[in-house]
Design a protein around this nucleic acid. Sequence first.
DNA 1: CCTTGACTAAACTGTTTAGTTTGATACGTA
DNA 2: TACGTATCAAACTAAACAGTTTAGTCAAGG
Lengths: 217, 217
Amino acid sequence: MTMIDTETVAEAPRAEPESTKRRDIIDGARKVFFEKGFDGASMDEVARAAGVSKATIYVYFGGKEELFEALVHNDRARAAERLFEVDSSADEVDTLLRHIGISFMTMMVQPDQIRMVRMVIATAEKFPRIGRAFFDAGPCRGGQRLADLLRRQADLGRLSIDDDVAAAYEFFNLCQSNSVKGLLFGVGEQPTPAQIEETVARAVRVFLAYYGTARAG
Amino acid sequence: MTMIDTETVAEAPRAEPESTKRRDIIDGARKVFFEKGFDGASMDEVARAAGVSKATIYVYFGGKEELFEALVHNDRARAAERLFEVDSSADEVDTLLRHIGISFMTMMVQPDQIRMVRMVIATAEKFPRIGRAFFDAGPCRGGQRLADLLRRQADLGRLSIDDDVAAAYEFFNLCQSNSVKGLLFGVGEQPTPAQIEETVARAVRVFLAYYGTARAG
DNA sequence: CCTTGACTAAACTGTTTAGTTTGATACGTA
DNA sequence: TACGTATCAAACTAAACAGTTTAGTCAAGG
């Protein structure tokens, strides 16, 4: 009768959302998941990349899926928010749009962003929750924020917008040209800043041809 | 000395590109791959779905990757070609664009098309050859064909196009709104034909505001 | 000095899978 | 009847992998 009734054994003893180990593990997971995809990555590799024992991973995370979800949640929203940090400066609507477009595209074509999108799309069937969370925090939120901004500009008489949400998506889509799709399929190089600027400039011209009020030269 | 020097043993004895079995196997592969993804699909399942023994698969295909590639090659180009079967009828440029846009979007939002894109994107890192083949035969070829068409319309004076390829991608991207991205992330329903028509109509209006020559009221 | 809690490396479990081999069946034909 | 060809079902091999367990290390602190 050794009485090993360690009733206090339950629960994660170590799962403080902000711990060095936890961050190490997520960093390792990012490296391996981004490189090999969800199915291709093994937990042994993640442990090795994180400089942590496999057992420790299972102390901090319930399993592979939970670790992946933590990674996505950790990385996602950052970008969508930073997109609009350019707002204040410009008061010309075309300059404003150009800034936003460049900011958007510069972010979108980052290798890590592409890998993240790839992985989330790949696992969207298996883990719809992750796909939805990513979509809501990324494209959806970004579209809504641009829609608000367009609406404000329309109220100032600088744009003529009928459907602000539709217009927002149109603008982002115009900016993408074929680069993003190409990168998702593993074709082509990351465009240079100059190329991005040119594509965005085109997008702004087309966009303003329909939605603009002042017809500039 | 039984002299079993069957020197003719080499090479695929059965690999005629068009055989009933070969087609059966690809059909089975489509069913299973689309449902489970490349990694999730097992060759036993494919064999069962194809009504074929696993050994037979390996007579016709060198392995899982080769089978997947054959499936992609088999299914891909079909769509990109059918896109432009609407050409002849319309001679109004906006009608023409609307037809092409609707045809494009109707194809893009098919569940099987979404699954195919998802799978190719997911495997693009592992098998770049497949990603490239799909991209070349799909988006790239489609863009080029629309660019040609736009150029022809421009030569007839119905459009004012500076960069036909860029304009083509802009048009396709305008058509997509948020539907395709949403479906790829597993969010939202397949849009109804009416919704597609509306989105495409918007896209045509925006496109023609910049590229059109006749300003229709 | 001993306990406790976090951690590690390594072995282990059970399962899944790609790909191979084997032995049998069925068919057309010489 | 005998032979070659195509196929099949099923067993098998070898490897990988998620997740668990074990035995032990290390440091803080009482």
